[in-house]
Design a binder for these strands. Structure first.
Lengths: 83, 83
DNA sequence: CGCGGTTATACGTTTTCGCGTATATTTATG
DNA sequence: CATAAATATACGCGAAAACGTATAACCGCG
């Protein structure tokens, strides 16, 4: 399932979901992307000052990609995803 | 058209494309998102250490959103977009 | 319960942001 | 061309990340 993100928190939540799907720990992901477990923790927590490099490294390590697109109207279903 | 991004450079290029579509200058976008023109410039240049907050503020100001999804195979068309 | 694995947090250091301010450089337009 | 507008770059500063290392808090499972 694709994840819509409009805030750093939502990005973090998405990363976490995909990481768990792949049965990886934060430490395991950290190793793949050459970052510390603590850094992965902050990324997933949605720390707004996290650097883009960290995000992109995580996405690459999880074989994910970003799409930038015009904001969609929120469907009832999408609203559910916010929680 | 949606933009696929796997690197900070591609994110920057996407932002720039959407900004121009909206007939905004870097300074104009900067004002909307409470950042300096110089900061917008670095974001669009794909500076990897740009902070997530800056990216999300820019997306919000441009009425855009992110989607996180598994990497797609590159179609011939998508490969064109890389250049 | 108790424990092993996972995740959150801490401290000191190095690195780098984004800021204000200012200017160089590039690009568009008359 | 000339000139204005837009974009890239510079310097010094304060704030905060990511780092190594370590430990505390949490969570599932026997």
């Amino acid at each position: 399932m694709d994840t819509i993100a409009r805030t750093p928190q939502q990005i973090g939540a998405g990363i976490r979901r995909y990481r768990r799907q792949k049965k990886l720990t934060q430490a395991g992901l950290g190793e793949k992307m050459h970052a510390r477990q603590a850094t992965v923790s902050k990324l997933e927590a949605g720390e707004p000052a996290t650097q883009l490099r960290i995000l992109m490294d995580a996405l690459a390590a999880l074989d994910l990609e970003l799409v930038i697109r015009p904001r969609t109207k929120l469907t009832a279903e999408a609203i559910e995803d916010l929680f």
